[in-house]
Amino acid sequence: MLRETTLEGVIDKELVAIERIKQYEPEEGYYVAFSGGKDSIVVYDLVKRAGVKHDVHFNATTVDPPEVVKFIKTYYPEVDWIRPKKSMFQIIVKHMMLPTGNMRFCCHELKEIGGKGRTVVLGVRREESMRRRNRLVYDESKRQKGKMFLNPIVDWSEDEVWEYIHKYNLPYPCLYDEGYKRVGCIMCPLQNIKGRERDKERYPKYYNAYLLAIKRMLKKEKKLVNRLKMVIRQKK
Rank of each mutant, 00 (worst) to 15 (best):
D12H: 12
K86R: 12
L212K: 14
D155G: 02
L46P: 00
A17F: 04
D64M: 10
N151M: 02
Y75F: 13
H57A: 07
E8A: 15
I82Q: 08
Q191R: 11
M148G: 02
K219A: 13
G51Y: 11
E112F: 06
F89D: 05
K222W: 12
M230G: 11
Y203D: 01
D64K: 03
K38P: 08
M130Q: 15
G184K: 00
M148I: 07
K13L: 11
D199F: 09
K111Q: 00
K48D: 08
Q23C: 14
A60F: 14
Q191H: 09
S157C: 06
N59G: 12
E25C: 14
V47F: 05
M96Q: 10
K145G: 13
H108R: 11
F149K: 00
I21F: 07
P77Q: 07
L224H: 04
K219D: 09
T5S: 15
Q191K: 14
D159S: 13
C174G: 13
T61C: 08
D12V: 11
I92D: 12
K70L: 06
L46W: 02
K73G: 07
K200T: 12
V93E: 12
Y164E: 09
K13S: 06
G51L: 09
K86P: 10
F105Q: 01
E25F: 12
V154H: 00
V183G: 08
F34R: 09
K94T: 06
P171E: 05
Y203N: 01
K48M: 04
I41R: 04
G123M: 02
S157A: 05
Y75S: 05
V183D: 02
L110A: 00
D55A: 13
G123S: 06
H108Q: 14
K205G: 08
G123C: 03
F89R: 07
Q23W: 15
D80Q: 13
T74C: 09
E28W: 10
D177P: 07
I18L: 15
P66T: 04
R118M: 03
P171R: 03
G184Q: 02
N208M: 15
K73N: 05
K73I: 07
Y76Q: 05
H95T: 04
V124F: 12
P152M: 06
S87R: 01
R196C: 00
K181D: 15
K85W: 10
D155A: 09
G114V: 02
T6K: 13
